[in-house]
């Protein structure tokens, strides 16, 4: 009797491991093993068929920090990160707060509209924005007709405006996405908390900063980490909206790495791996910082 019971539990024990084995094996082979390979490749030079250890071993890393173009791609990526992510998260929170009001009419309709950009692929919306802001495009013809511009302006051919358009496009695509998280977060806050604040005489602004924001802190940290992670890996927009141009002034890190490995010209796997490992470190550090900041205010 007892022996049979043992065998049933051990059968269950094995079953548990069997269930998680395929997924675990795939993550090990498709994520952990490649990242180790990337570190090894980053210490090598040469074309993909015959690679040797670099001389000195950190050659690709020293090259990276002297590469003005890579440094520019880092600068661009951080510009997008520092400008776009805060604006987007504040807008998303504001929209969620407004849409969470039970007295508001057509809530479902407005929510669907704001959320709709998420239904487009990153390539699709990049091409839509590229066409809208083309020199011979809708935005130009509107601005000229309204008399705001005298003649058609090459938005995507000018460094400053091209960067601004990438940021605008990112805001358009991702604000509704983040709003969904804040709406879910707000629904977990008890209505009585707000009632109590009202009785204590808090106005809307105070309620927002003293109650909503602190209670939403876990959501804020999570959306911040996701946005940072996503922005550091920005590729589709740089590739398709501006093609990195004009003269590489809007290129992102991932786009530059792609150009160095699979784009036109020589495949420089060693150098590209060094740069991609740099992104990995950045993602890890920035996620750790966001989590620390979130912990403190809790």
């Amino acid at each position: 009797m007892k022996k049979k019971g043992m065998s049933v539990t051990s059968k269950q024990h094995i079953a548990g491991w069997v269930y998680l084995a395929p997924a675990t094996a795939l993550i090990v082979v498709m994520s952990f093993y490649p990242i180790i390979q990337a570190v090894i490749t980053s210490l090598k030079t040469g074309s993909s068929a015959n690679m040797q250890w670099a001389e000195p071993i950190v050659y690709n890393y020293t090259r990276m920090f002297q590469d003005k173009l890579f440094m520019r791609s880092v600068g661009n990526t951080f510009l997008y990160l520092l400008v776009q992510v805060p604006i987007m998260l504040i807008l998303a929170m504001l929209l969620a707060q407004i849409l969470n009001n039970k007295d508001l009419k057509f809530r479902g309709f407005f929510r669907t509209c704001v959320f709709l950009p998420c239904a487009t692929s990153l390539v699709s919306y990049s091409l839509i924005f590229k066409s809208l802001f083309a020199t011979q495009g809708l935005i130009n013809s509107i601005l000229v007709n309204l008399g705001i511009l005298e003649e058609n302006y090459n938005f995507l051919g000018t460094a400053g405006s091209a960067k601004a358009i990438i940021i605008i496009a990112l805001l358009w695509r991702w604000t509704g996405y983040n709003m969904v998280f804040f709406l879910a977060g707000l629904q977990n806050i008890e209505y009585s908390v707000y009632e109590a604040a009202k009785i204590d005489g808090a106005n809307g602004w105070q309620t927002f900063w003293r109650i909503t924001v602190p209670l939403l802190m876990p959501t804020i940290v999570m959306t911040a980490i996701m946005s940072i992670n996503g922005t550091l890996q920005l590729f589709d927009e740089s590739m398709n909206l501006t093609s990195g141009g004009p003269a590489n002034s809007t290129i992102t890190m991932s786009h530059y790495i792609y150009n160095n490995s699979f784009g036109q010209g020589v495949a420089n796997f060693g150098y590209a791996s060094a740069m991609s490992f740099f992104i990995f470190i950045l993602v890890a550090i920035l996620s750790a910082i966001s989590m620390k900041v979130g912990d403190k205010r809790d």
């Binding site: 993550i27 093993y33 490649p34 990337a38 890996q233 991609s276 992104i279 993602v283």
Partner: peptide, 18 residues
């Protein structure tokens, strides 16, 4: 396994391609 969330796509792209 959760650590894999932090691995960027570009970092694994070259080894995975090979």
């Amino acid at each position: 396994l959760l650590l894999a969330m932090m691995v960027p796509q570009v970092a694994t792209m070259i080894p995975l391609y090979k």
